[in-house]
């Protein structure tokens, strides 16, 4: 079951792209007004990501999410979401 989030932070321009894809309703506010789009991974996908990107971190204490993934990977993830108009993209990027 996919349950571990990757947070993609949403600024103005990303929000507009999401609106165009009809995905703006998928964002939520998590921290002091910061909008985030959450993509969920399985435990196995989390391990694979942490192995592939050693600087990334699973924040066990507060957010329980995968953080510090390279900006390029997250950019790809976001572009693929917008292109596919779906959040179900993690498998194809691993």
């Amino acid at each position: 079951m996919n349950k571990i989030p990757i947070n993609i932070w949403i600024n103005e321009s990303r929000y507009q792209q999401l609106c165009q894809s009809g995905l703006e309703g998928m964002t939520k506010e998590v921290l002091a007004g910061m909008k985030v789009l959450q993509i969920f991974c399985t435990e196995e996908q989390k391990d694979l990501l942490l192995k592939r990107y050693p600087q990334a971190k699973y924040d066990q204490s507060t957010t329980k999410s995968i953080e510090l993934l390279p900006a390029e990977f997250k950019e790809n993830l976001f572009n693929r979401i917008v292109e596919k108009k779906s959040l179900d993209v993690i498998t194809e990027l691993l």
Binding site: M34, D59, K74
Partner: peptide
């Protein structure tokens, strides 16, 4: 909503202004 240093780093790394 707890301030997570790691989460804030992640926002900055994504080049999104908090």
């Amino acid at each position: 909503q707890n301030f997570s240093g790691t989460m804030i780093r992640s926002i900055i790394q994504d080049k999104v202004q908090p």
